[in-house]
Amino acid sequence: MSVSGHRGSLDRALLTLTRLSGVSPYLTVGGVVLAGVLLFAAAMGARLVLAPRAPTVMKLTTYECGVDPVGEGWAQTNVRYFLYAFLYVVFAVDAVFLFPWATVIRSSDLGRASLVEMAIFICVLLVGLAHAARRGLLRWV
């Protein structure tokens, strides 16, 4: 199933509308963004004029289960948890970069070149994954 050939019905509707009205698609995107910003501004404005406001000293203190807060807000995490970030980068960030590749792989001028480039990209990530596997991080605890 090629991603470029299948557009959702909403995409098709917006695209048809844009082409019919003769405006550039970027204007449509800008219109959607503007609508979102206006909606947010309306909601916050309604809150500003309608919401009650009653700040007291106790209300503004830091929450600590009803008792006086002690210590600082910062807590130190053990550095070994960086491995979660490492595996996240290998899998999730990798996947994010694979999605745009899927839109150009069928095109005649970019397809084969993108295949070679993505192979290099995935190999670099595989080196990191192999390191993690060698260290025993992929074994179930």
């Binding site: 809150r47 500003l48 004029v49 309608l50 919401a51 009650p52 406001r53 009653a54």
Partner: peptide, 16 residues
């Protein structure tokens, strides 16, 4: 002494 505003409702509540 802490300077905090008096509790109040939003300004448009009376005219809403």
């Amino acid at each position: 002494k802490v300077e905090l505003p008096m509790p109040r409702l939003g300004l448009a509540n009376n005219d809403a």
